[in-house]
Amino acid sequence: MKIDPTQRYKRELVAILSRLKKDKKIEKYQYDLLFPTAENIPRIYGTPKIHKPGNKVRPIVDYTGTIGYQTSRALADILSPLVGGTEHHVTNSKHLAESLAEVMIEEGEIFNSHDVVSLFTNTPIDESLNVIKARLEHDKTLSKRTLLALGVIRTLLDRMNSVISEKEDKDQKEGKIKHALKQCGYPEWTFNHVKRKMDRKQQATKVPGV
Rank of each mutant, 00 (worst) to 15 (best):
I164D: 08
F120W: 00
Y9T: 08
T71M: 02
M1E: 04
H138Y: 12
L13S: 00
L82A: 04
A180K: 07
K140V: 13
V163M: 09
G84I: 04
L33V: 13
D139L: 02
A180D: 13
L147S: 09
T155L: 06
M160E: 02
E174S: 07
K94M: 14
Y45K: 00
R11Q: 13
A134D: 07
K140Y: 01
D4V: 11
I132G: 05
L157G: 04
P81S: 05
I153C: 06
E106S: 14
K167W: 11
L129D: 03
L157I: 09
T64A: 05
T146K: 11
L119C: 02
I105V: 11
K140I: 06
T146L: 06
L150Y: 15
D4P: 15
H95T: 09
P208Y: 07
F35H: 01
L147I: 10
H89W: 00
L79Y: 07
D171F: 03
S143G: 02
D139A: 06
L136G: 01
P124Q: 03
S99M: 11
T146S: 07
V83H: 09
T146M: 03
D4E: 14
Q172H: 14
M160H: 03
Q203H: 10
K22P: 00
R8T: 10
G151P: 15
E39M: 06
E107Q: 15
K206V: 14
H193W: 13
T37F: 01
F111A: 12
R43F: 11
I3L: 10
N55R: 08
E39L: 15
V207Q: 11
K56E: 12
I78R: 08
C184V: 13
S162Y: 01
E12A: 14
L136S: 02
Q172I: 12
Q172V: 09
V194Y: 10
C184R: 15
T64H: 07
S128K: 07
V14W: 02
P124Y: 02
S143L: 03
Q7K: 07
A180Q: 13
I78E: 00
H89F: 08
I110H: 12
W189R: 12
F35L: 13
G175C: 12
I153M: 01
I132A: 04
I50Q: 05
G84L: 01
N40S: 01
V61S: 03
K49H: 00
T37Q: 12
D139P: 10
